[in-house]
Design a protein around this nucleic acid. Structure first.
Lengths: 189, 189
DNA sequence: CGATTCTTTGAAAACAGTCAATCTGTGTGG
DNA sequence: CCACACAGATTGACTGTTTTCAAAGAATCG
């Protein structure tokens, strides 16, 4: 289970056996049932989560009461409400398991320690953040240049297996429109 | 001029005199006239830019030929097309000076060196990226929960001086709608 | 002052949302 | 294993927001 995280880390930096041991002592893994929550609105986000298996989503409830999914995480991605996590203040988001999932957590009270004891991880997380940032940049690019229908087709072509795994109403909000509209797009063809 | 960057860095990490000297030798500063370009579509993005003074924007041209501004940078922010910069491949974006500006550049051929010679900077850029990532998360949240008109009012209340500095057609695309519509929103009240 | 760039305005059209009713599929408990 | 309940998906009519296009008006810069 932890090997998957170590392998991911090793794509970016080298870790020796000592460092692996240190890291191991600061991690905490857990299994999640489908639909269970790692974070709910109003709670403080306690950890940064690495997804070993399954699928999680980050969403919030908008003024009209609708769920807006802002991020999905699958295998080998990190997910957290960075703002709530960093400042340990109440979150405006939910993190929920879309499927039964397994995660490895770095809790907040270990977060500084992890970087102090294994400075190499600064680079790893810099690169992970860089990749996440690039992903959101791409996302904004699509949001600004494609219509709702085009976004759906593009996403569907790019990640067909993912579209199958996720309920449509979550996908709709992730792509920035309503479930009804997604249904109408699909009916067209 | 470089002091401003050093001061920014010192908000996150400590740099000693030696490290400052090393860093200095790897930086390159330049002045930009209003409307000049640091990057144009098709070019490879050569550097990561720290804005000392002025205002830059990152934008692309969509299928219909309209400019879509995806990011602004002001004093003390970094800006680049991370994807083009990292992989040294042609960019789909432009980076343009909205006002006469002064920037400090770290060029790509120095980028690895800078982290190898001053490992502390891994942390600095991790934290800078974290902040940028938080900013885009907030942005997506607003895009998904507010109407175009609400986004304008919210932005206008949050950054009134910024709204004054930037042409409306850039602001409109940044907020995700047309210049004409922005004009109509303003006419309402 | 002239030229260009930016903003405004209005009418028509497109795109996407809302709401409510109905349909479908699936998981659970009896 | 079946039946039922409930979550999720579909459909249609209507509404509303935002875009488009074209033309005219203001502002800015050299």
């Amino acid at each position: 289970m932890h090997n998957q995280l170590f392998n991911h880390i090793k794509k970016f930096i080298d870790l020796n056996a000592d460092e692996e041991q240190t890291l191991l002592s600061l991690l905490k893994s857990s299994s999640l049932k489908k639909k269970s929550f790692l974070l709910e609105e109003g709670q403080v986000c306690r950890a940064n989560y690495f997804l070993v298996k399954g699928c999680l989503r980050l969403y919030f409830i908008d003024i009209k009461g609708a769920e807006q999914t802002t991020q999905f995480a699958i295998e080998n991605w990190w997910i957290t409400d960075l703002t709530s996590f960093q400042f340990q203040k109440p979150s405006e988001f939910y993190i929920q398991a879309v499927e039964a999932s397994e995660v490895i957590a770095i809790e907040h009270h270990h977060y500084d320690e992890i970087f102090n004891r294994i400075p190499k991880l600064e680079r790893y997380f810099r690169l992970v953040l860089q990749k996440s940032y690039q992903a959101t940049q791409m996302r904004i690019r699509f949001l600004y240049s494609l219509t709702a229908e085009e976004r759906y087709h593009h996403f569907n072509n790019s990640f067909p297996e993912f579209v199958r795994r996720v309920p449509q109403y979550m996908l709709a909000s992730y792509l920035g429109f309503t479930p009804e509209f997604l249904s109408k797009i699909r009916a067209k063809k």
